[in-house]
């Protein structure tokens, strides 16, 4: 009799602890920080998380605050290996709540390229802020540079991906 009572109490306690444990909120992105310095990136188009009108704007610190990743790879533009550091475009897309399939990247020199969003998660495409440990000036592909880790697979060593590697980037439009 006392055994059964103890058992029932045990079950009751477990049920109570389940009921009181907090639910994990997954897809409610935190509001984006208001940039304080010069804007380096503007994201427009189909996004759900904006901080300036319908766009999301970032200065360098707020962009880097999204989380930094780095890798080294060879590129057609420099001999040997170049080290890149920056924010994964996949992270950025999620932070701004991108819902489209394609991103159009615009550069300062008015060059633009269309990138499928699926590239980001599949290849780990980086929005580089630093090259070989240094922020990049416009004269050296700055301020932002979309880089694929070309060495990781031979399929990336194609004109298609070289074309998608947009330097002097300052704007992204989700379409």
């Amino acid at each position: 009799m006392s055994m059964r009572r103890t058992f029932l109490v045990g079950i009751g306690t477990a049920a109570a602890s389940l009921a009181t444990s907090p639910l994990r909120a997954d897809d409610a992105p935190l509001p984006l920080a208001e940039p304080k310095g010069p804007i380096v990136l503007t994201v427009s188009g189909k996004i759900s998380n904006a901080n300036r009108g319908k766009t999301a704007v970032f200065d360098m610190p707020s962009l880097e605050a999204l989380g930094l990743t780095e890798f080294s790879t060879s590129t057609p533009w420099d001999p040997g290996k170049t080290q890149f550091q920056g924010v994964l475009l996949d992270t950025l897309m999620r932070r701004v709540g991108a819902s489209g399939k394609t991103v159009v990247a615009y550069a300062l020199n008015d060059y633009s390229a269309e990138l499928p969003i699926s590239d980001f998660a599949r290849y780990g495409t980086l929005l580089a802020t630093k090259m070989n440990g240094k922020y990049m000036p416009v004269s050296s592909k700055g301020p932002l540079f979309i880089v694929y880790p070309f060495d990781s697979r031979s399929t990336l060593e194609r004109q298609t991906f070289y074309g998608r590697s947009v330097w002097q980037l300052n704007r992204l439009a989700i379409v």
């Binding site: 533009w77 300062l108 020199n109 000036p137 416009v138 004269s139 050296s140 592909k141 330097w167 002097q168």
Partner: peptide
């Protein structure tokens, strides 16, 4: 900006 862009091209 245009100069820098060109400088970048030159470098390439």
């Amino acid at each position: 900006l245009r100069l820098e862009i060109f400088e970048n091209r030159f470098e390439i």
